[in-house]
Amino acid sequence: MHETLRSLSGQQHKLSVMIKTHYGDRFLAKIALGIGALFLADDFTISSSASLLRTFMWTKSLNERQQLKLHGSGFLGGTEDSLKQILNWPGGHVIALIADNNNLNLYCSFYGVQNAIVRISSEPELWKERIGEGVVFLIAPGIQKFVGPIELSKYIAHKFEDDLKDEQLSQLEEDMENKPEAPPYNI
């Protein structure tokens, strides 16, 4: 094998990769189910919302998944640019739980490149007292640090209001700036 690779050295090669365009949808449902189990009321795991996420996660056929009507957008579908502008964190990952009327949604952004949102629960009694209007978790893989949960309103204020900076977020920003160049994430 090593000799075969060595003989190919210095030559131009072509590579084609087949990717299913909805590869992240089932993964997103799995994340939503896990986050819900961690942060929502114990009854979440037996709720109709969790059942929908489980069914979606285990359904292999795209056509069958589309019939399930799980609200949200997959990673390749992306999210609205305004939501990205508000929530993304340069150089890191964002996991946010966002209340919208009687729904709780999971927003994920990986390095600000892959963004998706999915409904975790439409049963406010499972999350209203625990989550409020929303919480945000930030992960900075390049420096192996995270911050959260931070109230959604405090996160947004930190990003857009100079006189409302959050101490934990400011420290994370400083740590990220003082770290040598982060490893590449978009190779």
Rank of each mutant, 00 (worst) to 15 (best):
E181L: 12
K14E: 15
Y185W: 12
Y111E: 09
E125Q: 09
L83E: 15
C108M: 14
K69E: 14
S61M: 07
A96I: 06
E167A: 14
L62I: 10
G24E: 14
I46G: 01
S121G: 00
F75W: 09
A41R: 06
L5V: 06
L5Q: 07
F39W: 12
V136G: 03
K69T: 04
V113R: 02
M57A: 15
I187V: 13
T55L: 08
R119F: 00
N103R: 04
S61R: 10
H158Y: 08
G134I: 07
Q11K: 14
K154I: 11
Q168D: 15
V118I: 15
K165I: 10
K165M: 08
G91S: 01
R54F: 05
L169W: 11
E161L: 13
L40V: 04
S9K: 13
L70T: 04
E151I: 03
V147W: 01
E181I: 08
L152E: 07
I143Q: 08
N88W: 04
A29S: 15
V118G: 01
N101A: 10
L68E: 12
A50S: 05
P141K: 01
L28Y: 02
D42G: 06
K84M: 13
I31C: 07
A157Q: 14
N103T: 07
Y155W: 08
G148S: 12
N63H: 13
Q12N: 12
P141W: 01
E167T: 15
G10R: 01
F146P: 00
S9F: 14
G72P: 04
T55Q: 09
P141I: 05
L68S: 07
K30E: 14
W58K: 14
Q144A: 14
L38C: 13
P90F: 04
